[in-house]
Amino acid sequence: MARNKISAGRKKKTWKEMSPSGKAGIIITAVVQMSLLVAAQRDISRRPAELINGPKAAWRAASFINFIGPMGYFVFGRKRSGTGM
């Protein structure tokens, strides 16, 4: 019951009600998220399965989790090469 009283006091802002800097922040965040998603999906598609830790399908699905999925793939999903690159 108390939760309804708290949330009733705050009204979600519509796009038109947001400040220009708020709009820019949302757009930049969306572009970064989509770029990470596309980069992860492209890397998963092009990288051989033996160079990925775990199943490709699991990493492909995980990459759809905002920010955490693609970053997790790039940090933990790709096997490191021993060439020093």
Rank of each mutant, 00 (worst) to 15 (best):
A2V: 06
R3E: 10
N4M: 09
N4A: 15
I6R: 05
G9N: 03
K11E: 07
K13F: 00
W15L: 06
K16C: 01
K16F: 04
M18F: 00
S19V: 11
S19H: 13
S19P: 10
P20E: 11
P20T: 06
G22Q: 15
K23A: 01
G25C: 07
G25A: 15
I26T: 14
I27M: 13
V31P: 10
V32A: 09
M34F: 13
S35E: 06
A39G: 01
A39R: 02
D43W: 05
I44K: 00
R46M: 14
P48F: 04
E50S: 14
L51H: 10
P55S: 14
P55N: 05
K56H: 03
A57F: 09
A57C: 05
A58M: 11
W59F: 12
W59P: 08
R60T: 15
A61G: 08
A61W: 08
S63G: 06
I65V: 15
I65G: 07
N66H: 14
I68V: 15
P70M: 03
G72P: 02
F76P: 02
R78S: 03
K79I: 08
K79P: 06
G82S: 14
G82E: 14
T83Q: 14
T83W: 11
G84H: 08
G84Y: 03
M85Q: 12
M85H: 11
